[in-house]
Design a protein around this nucleic acid. Structure first.
Lengths: 192, 192
DNA sequence: TCTATCATGTAACCAGTTACATGATTTT
DNA sequence: AAAATCATGTAACTGGTTACATGATAGA
């Protein structure tokens, strides 16, 4: 009862168990099959850990332990009522209230004055290229297709929207920095 | 020599020490004074930890220990050549290559089918309101002013660009979900 | 039969957070 | 003189990661 999942991987477990009871390995397989590891960091050892935590906190419970062939025994877990409640509580909050995040690029921008403006212009060019490749990939992925429902690509739509915004911003910034319009403070730190 | 800073707070330390040698507490004060804790997560105990790590890895070294009045002694650290090199190496990489991030909202979208579409429409409305407040605040903050140089607000410009993109996306998504156009899969999971 | 990969975990390590501690200075 | 808060850390906890371990099955 440490108060809430707070870990996206724990949320996946609760969400998948809402469909049906499963054993940890199946959770991992499903996560990869549905490509959720693009949006939620997944390490298989972390999965066993969060399962243990969810168990400790009473959000899930062992339902049966089965054995297929000579493979090791495995424990099938099911969602408890408390876990069901926590799942919707947490999901509703994640959707309704924007969380404070700390993107690496934002941190880099906050410290950008340590690099000479001329270098930064070049580096931003590199970033632009990478962004364009990523955007092309995402556009491909969100293209409507008959065999994948729209709702299963919704997270890529979102990532695409953000990537495009970043692209526009970086392009503008690069132009400005390349033109030398960076203010006296920054240029003063890097005399020619 | 664990190979690289990898921690944004460590990067701040290196960046600030490039200006001049300082003791840990001063680093923290400066970080807050320059509002970097908006872009880089800061806990004062974490600061002491990363200082210890940077010391261990040879990126910084104690320069002198001074005492002011009856206050406890404090150690002033300076950047080593290796630290200088690591700073620019890491900064260049952060600027040039987009890092894979895992925003909470993206995770929530990836699992959105666990919530009923009607609820989601409402929750997205709440999010929109919060986003608008945040955007207003950021617009205020990036407004040109005589006493703060542009380059010191660059990270807010970036955050603003992303927030505006998210706002547009969420508005569109909310309209679509509210209109009931969510596909058979999602609506099938939540019968009326 | 050897190799790869599937399936299922455990253990040790490490980084970051929370909570605790303590004396100095300033405010009321 | 008491309370607040500034200044400077240390210690314990906890969560997540890396690395290790081990048997089963499938492919070459």
């Amino acid at each position: 009862m440490a108060g809430g999942v707070s870990n996206p991987l724990g949320l996946v477990v609760l969400a998948f168990l809402q469909e049906r009871p499963m054993h940890p390995y199946e959770l991992g397989r499903l996560l990869k099959a549905r490509n959720k590891q693009e949006s939620i960091k997944y390490r298989h050892a972390s999965l066993y850990m969060v399962v243990k935590q969810l168990l400790r906190d009473g959000y899930i419970e062992p339902q049966e332990t089965s054995r297929a062939g000579q493979l090791p025994e495995r424990t099938v877990y099911a969602l408890t009522p408390s876990g069901q409640e926590e799942l919707t509580r947490q999901m509703r909050e994640l959707v309704a209230v924007p969380a404070k995040e700390y993107p690496r690029f934002e941190a880099a921008l906050a410290l950008i004055v340590v690099l000479p403006p001329d270098d930064v212009a070049v580096l931003l060019g590199d970033r632009l290229e990478a962004l364009e490749r990523r955007i092309a990939e995402l556009r491909e992925r969100v293209r409507p297709s008959p065999d994948v429902e729209w709702v299963h690509k919704i997270e890529y739509e979102y990532e695409l929207a953000l990537a495009e915004a970043e692209q526009r911003y970086v392009a503008r910034l690069r132009a400005q920095v390349a033109s030398g319009d960076v203010g006296t403070l920054w240029s003063g730190l890097h005399p020619r």
